Amino acid sequence: MSYGDEHGYGDGPGRTDDGFGGTGQTRTRLPDGRSGDLYGGGPRRPARGSRSLITVVGVVVLLIAAIAFANRGGDKGAEGAKGTGGGAAAAPTAASGVKPVTGKNGTIPAGFPHTEQGAASAAANYAVALGSAEMFDAASRRDIMRATHDPATVEDLLNDMDTAYSPAFYQNVGLNEDGSAPAGLTFVSRTVPVGTKVTGFSDSAATVEVWSTGLLGLAGEGSTKPVTETWFTITAQLKWTGGDWKITSSSQSEGPTPVTGDNRASTADDIAKAVEEYGGFTYAR
């Protein structure tokens, strides 16, 4: 939500999941703590303050959330290999020069290449969308879910999401019962991919891990939920359907988390201003 908390409020039973030929249902960690077949970053946060996504949604967080994309070296690596089967080591960070996407679905990138790099790009960009503050608005949440998930499972998943984003959940993260921010405060929820790793790939499916950091909280004078950062890794199961990569299920784990630096925390007003003035990116090599 931040494909981050949206991101996880505990575990629970959910529908059977399978991105590679199983039931085809989506599995996600829902904000209220239920494991749902969902979503996403990544983006929502447990009492101790860690994010868990879609995300937030399980990923989806799923729930929510840049990214480095697969570069196998040379021209062939830049294009990505098809049908190579399972596992891959972490890709180098050098740019491949291959554009990540050719279009968009609403505000979300769409039309990713049918390659490993395309799958990695899709997972990263979907993590950002699923870990965004827009996931806390019912109408925009449904648009985001439909743009990022497998059409065969997304409608059932939407019902789970509407249940998960309850008035009690909103209050738990400091929002009003309708999901809006209290007067004078700015709600912040962002997932920022740091790198990706393709751990499984075929012509019809892919498994991508997205290492991310996320921001979550309320910025403004008097906030009791200050904006904090978290680190998490989203594992997204993707399916090639309708000429694009879509999420079938996802999960999230904590870390890897670096040592906190010596930077002095900015004021709430500075954080709120930054969120309003700094936009996002389309992620890929």
Score class of each variant (00 low, 15 high):
M1K: 10
S2Q: 06
S2Y: 02
S2I: 09
G10K: 08
D18K: 03
G19L: 00
T23L: 09
G24M: 02
T26Q: 13
R45I: 15
P46V: 07
G49E: 06
L53R: 08
I54V: 10
V56P: 15
V56G: 14
V57L: 08
L62N: 15
L62C: 15
A66N: 12
F69M: 04
R72Q: 15
K76D: 13
G77L: 01
E79V: 09
G86D: 09
A94M: 03
G106T: 15
G106C: 12
G111V: 03
F112I: 12
G118I: 14
Y126D: 10
A127W: 04
V128G: 01
F136H: 03
M145F: 03
P151D: 08
V154C: 07
L158A: 01
S166N: 09
P167N: 07
Q171V: 11
N172Y: 06
G174H: 04
D178T: 08
P182L: 10
A183S: 11
G184I: 01
L185F: 04
T191K: 05
V194Q: 13
V194A: 10
G195T: 07
V198D: 00
T199P: 02
G200I: 01
S204Q: 10
A206N: 03
V210I: 00
W211L: 04
S212M: 06
G214Q: 11
A219F: 07
A219G: 01
G220P: 03
S223F: 06
P226M: 12
W231A: 09
F232A: 12
Q237P: 00
K239F: 08
T241P: 02
T248C: 07
S249Y: 02
S249A: 13
S250C: 08
S251Q: 12
E254R: 15
V259N: 06
D262C: 00
R264H: 10
S266Y: 03
I271M: 14
A272H: 01
K273V: 02
E276F: 02
Y278N: 07
Y278D: 05
A284S: 13
R285L: 07
R285H: 11
